[in-house]
Design a protein around this nucleic acid. Structure first.
Lengths: 200, 200
DNA sequence: GTGACACTAACGAACGTTAGTTAGGCTTGA
DNA sequence: TCAAGCCTAACTAACGTTCGTTAGTGTCAC
């Protein structure tokens, strides 16, 4: 059902990975320590040998997943080449990081729902701030007249929103594509077309 | 905007409204029957005079909120006038229905996270199918060459995604706007500009 | 080598709390 | 009078967590 976690990882890491998957599916309150323990193959009491309490385990799971995601996006942003190609690579990486890693996407979505401002600020400082700044810089370089940060915000919103709605699109209209590579192509083309015109 | 404003709401309706608000903030598992009862001003046991169990109360809350939201959007879509004005009105209504009704937006988001396909299908059939079809028709009328349904899907994704991310935008970049009327204006302009050019 | 010791990570049992839910009785407007 | 709607009290199940214990492992003086 869920992804198989390699068993030669330390128990501590396996616990975090399993917890991330469960939290992403059912949320913090919807997962019990016994659920996590059972999925790992140990008893609930043993979890406390690795994490102080449920909340510490939750944050460890978040950190594991989000740092992986941030690294993915930043790698793509470090790529060299023509600006047009770098934009395509960035959009593609962003789509991939969202659609290709449902655990991360769902955890992020739940965090946006449940988190408070303090937690957002830590999340931004730790993992999302740098990739966003790089995106903004690239978009500003490509369209010096426009507002790179605002465009980046729209881009992230659209990609994330589309991946969230993807499950119900077939019910809304069977012709809607759920192929996210099409989404990436459309977005890159749209952005490039937009940048070749003057825009407020 | 103004649905039924009765002189005295029935306890049953008040329970559903209060429950909707709490569920939207903390999710199904994060809200107890005692929480809801306390917010209404009665005891938990009394809730069972109105709803069979917690799940029935949850679905009643969903129905109350989503039917209100769907009516809002459909009202705007029924407006007459020049196509350009109708598009502006539609985008504005969609933004308003999302940003101006956080309870509905958050409940929808949680439903997209937690719901299964069966629940999506019921949700689409009951409340989201008709407004979406109207949007598609309007967009197709405005740009006969394009794919109205796909554009509608992008539009909904972007609006919803933006409202979801809104709380962390100030932390990402202080210049980002959280004024949703600006979002509505930008989107309407972008769509109209796009439709005046041939587009795949 | 070997016994003593400390450390790790697992266990079953139990703690106090809170969950959803039910039963039965009191109050009150029609 | 009577049903509707509220209450208190209680139930069982599940929750997060702590406890004492144990098996296995590495360390080191002797």
């Amino acid at each position: 059902m869920s992804t198989v976690i390699a068993s030669d990882f330390s128990t501590r890491d396996r616990v975090a990975a399993v917890a991330a998957s469960l939290f992403s599916e059912r949320g913090f309150a919807g997962v019990s320590m016994r659920d996590i323990a059972e999925a790992v193959g140990i008893k609930a009491a043993s979890l406390y040998n690795h994490y102080a309490d449920k909340e510490a385990l939750y944050f460890a799971a978040l950190a594991q997943v989000f740092s992986r995601r941030a690294a993915l996006v930043e790698d793509a942003l470090r790529a060299t080449g023509a600006p047009r190609e770098r934009l395509k690579a960035m959009v593609s990486a962003l789509v991939q990081a969202t659609a290709g890693d449902p655990v991360a996407a769902r955890l992020l979505q739940r965090e946006l729902l449940d988190g408070d401002i303090k937690r957002f600020e830590r999340l931004v400082a730790d993992v999302f701030g740098r990739p966003f700044a790089h995106m903004t810089a690239l978009l500003t370089e490509l369209a010096p007249g426009g507002d790179g940060a605002q465009t980046a915000a729209y881009l992230i919103s659209l990609i994330h929103g589309y991946c969230v709605f993807a499950p119900i699109f077939p019910a809304l209209d069977p012709t809607l594509t759920t192929d996210t590579s099409v989404l990436a192509d459309n977005l890159a083309e749209e952005l490039l077309g937009r940048m070749e015109r003057p825009h407020p």
